[in-house]
Design a protein around this nucleic acid. Sequence first.
RNA 1: GCCCGGGUGGUGGAAUCGGUAGACACGCAGGACUUAAAAUCCUGUGGUAGCAAUACUGUGCGGGUUCAAGUCCCGCCCCGGGUACCA
Length: 921
Amino acid sequence: MSHYEHQIIEKKWQDIWAKGVFRTEDPNQTDKPKYYVLDMFPYPSGAGLHVGHPLGYIASDIVARYKRLRGFNVLHPMGYDAFGLPAEQYAIQTGQHPAVTTEENIKRYREQLDRIGFSFDWSREVKTCDPAYYKWTQWIFIQLFNSWYNPVSNKAESIDSLIQIFEASGCNNDIHPFSPEEWKSMDEKMQSSVLLNYRLAFLSEAMVNWCPALGTVLANDEVKDGVSERGGHPVERKLMTQWSLRISAYAERLLQGLDKIEWSDSLKESQRNWIGKSTGCSLHFNLENPVGDVSSLEVFTTRPDTVFGVSFLAIAPEHELIDNLCTGIYRQAALDYTEKAKNRSERERQSEVKNITGAFTGSYVIHPFTGKKVQIWVADYVLGGYGTGAVMGVPAHDSRDYSFAKFFNLDITEVVKGGDISIESYDAKEGILINSDFLNGLEVKDAIKKAISEIEQRGLGKGKTNYRLRDAVFGRQRYWGEPIPVYYQNDIPKVLPIDQLPLRLPEIDKYLPTETGEPPLARANNWNYNGYPLETTTMPGWAGSSWYFIRYMDPQNDQSFASKAALDYWKDIDLYIGGSEHATGHLLYFRFWTKFLYDLGYIPVDEPAKKLVNQGMIQGTSCLIYRVNNTNKYVSFGLKDKYETTAIHIDVNIVEQGNTVQLDKLKLWRPSEFEHAEYELENGKLICGNEVGKMSKRWHNVVNPDDVCNDYGADTLRLYEMFLGPLQDAKPWSTQGIEGVLRFLRKFWRLYHSGTNESFFLSDEEPSKAELKILHKTIKKATDDIDNFSFNTSVSAFMVCVNELQDLKCNKRAILEPLSIILSPYAPHITEEIWEMCGHTTSVSKAQWPAFNPEFLIENEFNYPVSFNGKVRFNLNFALDKDLKEMESEILNNEQTLKYLEGKPVKKVIIVKGKIVNVVA
RNA sequence: GCCCGGGUGGUGGAAUCGGUAGACACGCAGGACUUAAAAUCCUGUGGUAGCAAUACUGUGCGGGUUCAAGUCCCGCCCCGGGUACCA
């Protein structure tokens, strides 16, 4: 074979690899260090993979192959996040079992992945919908149910330890304190409901995001801008009894843990914002007229220093005392307002943020320090679900309070110097306190401390930390998810015994809720345990993905979720690659479950992934053609402004060079529309417009990697996706430039084919200094670039290397064999073929990464750019160890120097060794 | 609004520590080989002026630090992503 024929080579090696070349080594049989590189596993959708999906997989595969060459035992698995809404929606429409369609999709994904030449260890594949897998997801749920978060030891512990505390010393929290005797006298149901307030998996009545169109509840991260993330359906708030996970118990540790992991700053920042820690204090304002036994309103503030600037109190429309506080002539108007505010949907409230609304309740509180009467208002900018649902209004130093006070003409008292409160509020946390009695003259930071200590001393409140992070709703009114292993004995929720797992998903006739509105599982026959009804909601999509990285370590184990030996060897993920869209969902839940399992001693690490890299999205480039309105005529891009036109998306696969529509293919694509249409061309061509956006069927801009593999080969696809730009950046897909990569591989191939009739030939001659320099320069660059995830520049380094070796007509084995090893992580098929032609009988993936020898790069001279006042004028060659004084005099005596000095005296000569010379005149 | 990125040729991008801006690739122009095409190879390619050597100019805008700034500092403009009445 003298030509590079990618179809033949790639098929050949993929078949050989499928025999288990990339099987992970058993930790007991090897002393190699471990390296765990993981991709976020895909949801197998019916649409298959597009060219954007493999981007991260290619990067991780390069790292995996590189680490193997460096002598690591690499765990590089792949699997499927296989439970989820789309399969179920499809089942509802077609009646096909989601397990069947999911399995078909997985098969197609696998074929597509195999064509790209990934080195996954498929013997470790996991599927979250497999009962052998979800048995352990259910097992973890049971552990969560059987645990509570002990604030003293600051970790999760068995619920039994809490029961012991209750039996020995009762409970003295503010909400429902009880004595040991009272605890013992409670019946089972009462005890169970008390314990539910502590269990990490718990049943509670809570405000949830209810999506009527999907017929299910959604977690906070599954709702974007008031609509569901999947499908874009409206979401409303609804009070429901739901299974939830107490992630809020881990808020502080999830925050602290970020400091010790190597994740991108933007991603850590998203998680910090989502956790939303704020420190401040609670503060009680006594009511002028107490309501029953409630004598005060509690607010939470991060700015207790501004307490002397309070000119009103504002409470949320959901506040529990609202009915009691609305009094006198203001009562009706205030209640009307409350009712209206409560009925507005989340979406409306969000879209009308700028509108200032509120109503005076007619009630007052007494300012704890000044003794003055302060009005209580109800306002929808105060949220019922955060803090205490009540805030102190300090218009001078909070922009929302400021707009509110301006709108309703309330007092604005400046208490921190630094701004101009006649124009806007001064929110900054710096300045000197004024008009504030005992705080006067203090800096804000000190004033906050002083105010809190004063508040605590007078018994008005306490220093306090609040988190925005809410507990995660865990039940879904859906079929296609893990059944929750819970049954109800006399209405008391109990978890199934471990030996009853997995609790298999039952067969049902239809995948819809029952006529009475119960979840689909209620349709199942005999859905009970020993006659007691089983839970009918299922787990959310993120349950299985919260721990899958552990299962890959020991995927077939049926005694435990992974053996201790496997866990101790593999520990955590060294490199995790995936999209940033999971920042506040999956990546938070998976850290939470890891910390939980760590607390119970099941795993040896409390952070799942040491390093995380977000690959950017590959966007689609849509192609648009322009139809003249009310006609059947289409005009080329440059002519569209002459008419009133409508842009129409057409299939990108019938467009050449990014903008030339192939008319014959267009007519075949949609004959009814285009076969008999009229076309106005430019230079004989129909030119289309372009638009960059998400790659999706809807815009006809999906490019299938299979097509690219057919036309150019998997090695070209791999190199090209890496060459496009930095891994982390978003970039639109375009095949402009892919030819260059194919050309590079052909050149590379030709280096090894310098024999007669371009047959394979390598010379065993000693390589020259120049050849060794090129090779070692490239080894160094390739090594450094993989460590820095700078794959685009290493591809260009390979191109430079091949160009230079070609110029030298290099055909030396001592150069070209190591070159094929360092290229092999990027272009595994062509390098396997060449490695075999070189006479090796084992895979190039079993070779050793060539050692970099810096001696070959040592230069003894350097061609210095000589600049005058910073402008480079000419170059001079000097030995690198030359005496600087001598250099200086030689430069100054150079005839060109005289020319550029233009007679001016030399002030200074700066010589930076091996870099530059600058003459200052 | 706030937080995080980013702004460099016709295009994707490079410049990792403040030291020759534009590597590598695409595209384009010209040429070689060929009956022709494909493939391959060679030359040129930031802008302006010039036959050329060369000169001036040039990394979003305005200022600053420095012998030297795409890179550092100050002020602004624009683009992308995240997030929000979170007190």
